[in-house]
Amino acid sequence: MAKTVIRKKIEVLVDMPLLSRIEKLAEQAAIKFFMVLPTRGGGTEQGRWYDDRVTGGAGTKVLFSAITTEENASNFINALEPLLDSYGIIVTRSDVEVIRSAKF
């Protein structure tokens, strides 16, 4: 059986216009593996959102998902902290098992 190693998975739900900033912070935190997933819609305490494809991304959210080491994950979350309240960003962190850990 392939050997697995524990890594951290961080998911950031963010408004589309802010995505480039999140990507830059991830790069600064030495995160190598990430992907950006579109969302069709959802809800928060402020109400619902939809990907209506006409409003320049202002009303659209994307899910930034990264897998990295514990140290990089902590650095990334610390860098995100000042943005959390003002931009209403949702961040989750969890353990995942990965194969070929050097890639993360």
Binding site: D15, M16, P17, L18, V54, T55, G56, G57, A58, G59
Partner: peptide
């Protein structure tokens, strides 16, 4: 506007 300005204002 509902394309250019919303994105700029969100930022």
């Amino acid at each position: 506007s509902y394309i250019a300005v919303p994105a700029a204002m969100r930022l």
